[in-house]
Nucleic acid binder design. Structure first.
Lengths: 256, 256
DNA sequence: ACAAAAGTGTTTAATTTACACCCATGT
DNA sequence: ACATGGGTGTAAATTAAACACTTTTGT
């Protein structure tokens, strides 16, 4: 259980982690943001968020905690999910990144050392929306999904962090099959393609995409089909992580 | 000028930067390591480095300094070079990363807070050996190049950091033309190919490499040739950064 | 003359691209 | 019946891979 505000012990006031949690609703790529409130957990969630009242989920690290653990803890506290894809992508440390007036005012209410310079280590995380249960966590009423195409103004340098996370996920998407982390275990090839199109911001030709991705040989075609759709039901596939990892082979190709 | 040891002010004892500085001598990829000595600068450089006496160049950040600035400062102090390729690739923060006995003993002699947990933000840097002048800096006699194929045991978690830097440079080498940062302004295609072969640890076919890299259209062929080589002199080329950046176009391709 | 690396082309296979129609399902 | 997305194949162009001999230079 979390102790909050100035009361928390074993907390390193100089280093934090922030998580850019992505979710895909088959239409858009979304980021989970929290509405910050005085007192961290308690507070009235009914008031409209003021300008800059939204932020990435994050926390200071504990003194005896690895960075990845801290990231996983933040994710767990917010979503109640374990074993979620989570990858560090950049550290942000501008000397004034937590020093603007609005942010400082808020920090004074919740931080032991509100004037300290804070370096943050940023992670991006991929969550299947069907796993995210807003009831599961005490933070839930403070968190909401925002489409990446329309992120509001955020606290600190969090808009920058979201942008960098997007760049990181786009880069990685083509080099590692991370897209599956955003889809349910069984999915259609069109859903997969739309995921790629959404993240890359680019249309992909249906037949060619299908051929390419199936050639990779880590997609297991199921006998199952979609149901309840007002058109021909699509075959469902499963991602075979084992197969991917065993077939994994270094490949070098100039892409510049 | 650097103030050292416990006397340094404005220094953040919780966060450091470390630089993995790569250099290419046309044979091997090398890393610049420093021999750590009590008192940081002063000390006898004639004694043999003891086990674990080598480390990556690094320093704590200053309170008013950006992370990238801190990295550039470390590089500058060690090599007297400005405007060098330098890229952050990972933050390391294991709670015990600076807590082993040998390391702690040494830290007590030079650090204001030897017991503090230190998160380090790691950079890799690419330096042309012809620019590195060992006379230029007061650290020079403490620094030496080591081939990446034979890195000795290093302080802290620096062996891990070097490994991760190598992975990062290999990944980036095929996606961005960073290799040129390791070569003199004028180079032959064989030198360029050997650079790629060395970093990737893999032979590349001469004619195909030549065709591929020339098609990229950012190599300017010069009228000049090599001299003093006991074989047919090769044509020299220059990398045209402007041209690269203008031709720069997003390209998506599955490489998994 | 010899050793050593430079420079050059072609053939074959694999991959990429562009493109259009019928099918199955729910309303 | 109609609207919606599912599913399929081919031809042409491009790119990748494999491969060997002649040239130039210093010793």
């Amino acid at each position: 259980m979390l102790e909050y505000g100035n009361l928390r012990k074993n907390l390193n006031p100089h280093v934090s982690v922030d998580c850019v949690i992505f979710g895909f609703d088959f239409q858009e790529l979304n980021v989970l943001l929290i509405e910050r409130e005085e007192g961290y957990i308690e507070g009235n969630s009914s008031s409209k968020p003021a300008r800059g009242a939204l932020a990435l989920p994050g926390d200071h690290i504990h003194e005896d905690e690895k960075l990845d653990q801290a990231g996983a803890r933040v994710l767990k506290e917010l979503t109640n999910l374990d074993n979620i894809f989570l990858e560090q992508f950049h550290a942000f440390g501008h000397p004034n990144r937590v020093k603007n007036e609005a942010d400082r005012k808020w920090m004074k209410t919740i931080r032991a050392e509100p004037n300290a310079r804070v370096i943050t280590v940023a992670y991006y995380s991929l969550v299947r929306l069907d796993r995210y249960n807003p009831q599961a966590s005490s933070f839930a009423k403070h968190a909401a999904w925002f489409p990446v195409s329309d992120i509001p103004e955020l606290a600190f340098d969090h808009n920058l962090i979201v942008m960098r996370a997007l760049e990181a996920i786009r880069r990685t998407l083509m080099n590692q099959p991370i897209g599956f982390e955003l889809l349910p275990p069984k999915f259609t090839l069109s859903q997969l393609r739309r995921l790629y199109e959404t993240i890359l911001g680019k249309e992909l030709e249906k037949r060619n995409f299908r051929r390419k991705i199936l050639k990779k040989d880590f997609l297991i075609p199921l006998e199952e089909k979609q149901t309840g759709v007002p058109h021909k039901a699509a075959r469902l596939f499963q991602f075979d992580k084992e197969k991917y990892e065993s077939h994994q082979t270094e490949k070098y190709d100039f892409t510049f």
